[in-house]
Design a binder for these strands. Structure first.
Lengths: 100, 100
DNA sequence: CAATTACTTCGCCATATGGCTAAATGACTG
DNA sequence: CAGTCATTTAGCCATATGGCGAAGTAATTG
């Protein structure tokens, strides 16, 4: 296995930071469970905190590439990018067997 | 698959938060690469930041259960707990196939 | 037992994060 | 085109995080 490149570690950076907050992990699992896409309003309704707080979490997830957003009329749809989650699996691979 | 229990989500909480910082991820990969255990001093030497900063990161990792520490004379040895990393894999399993 | 080694703990400070309300935007509806 | 709906942006504030140097502790060494 190659040494972790700079660009690669930057991606890890955003993804792991995004996953650090429970609300953001819940957004991901729920959107996934609901078929991979949900409107902002549906997502916001899951939480007790105010809507702008959810908007902020959504932005973090989008910036990490874990979600993509798309306008649908006056709604906004957030769709999960499962490929980006693979990055986490990739990182875990460093631990899967003893060092060679 | 069962719904995520409270205790379980608390574990996730600590683990994901611990993995959010690049220094802490580097500690884990390096300790793993070096055979699973390293002394505090060796770990601190990897970084440009001051030793107390490393001590703090180590504490976060221990509290997340990702490392365990043990005194060895006047040194302290940190050992990786690979089982705890499985928690991350477990969480990722929520995404491995379409909702049923 | 005094000094040194190997760390950790303490207290401080700057920045980042995550919450809020109020205001702005952009699309649809009458 | 005025109003409403869905959502974001702006600006504010409290707390959490991560850095530091200085001081403390526990084991080993002279």
């Amino acid at each position: 296995m190659k040494r972790e490149s700079k660009a690669q570690s930057d991606l890890y950076e955003a993804v792991f930071a995004a996953l650090a907050h429970p609300a953001r992990r819940r957004i991901l699992t729920t959107v996934n469970f609901e078929g991979g896409a949900m409107q902002a309003g549906e997502i916001a309704a899951m939480f007790e905190h105010a809507w702008p707080t959810t908007t902020r979490h959504l932005r973090v997830l989008v910036e990490a590439g874990l979600l993509h957003d798309e306008r649908r009329g006056r709604a906004r749809v957030y769709r999960i990018d499962r490929k980006r989650l693979e990055l986490v699996r990739d990182w875990l691979a460093w631990f899967s067997k003893d060092p060679g």
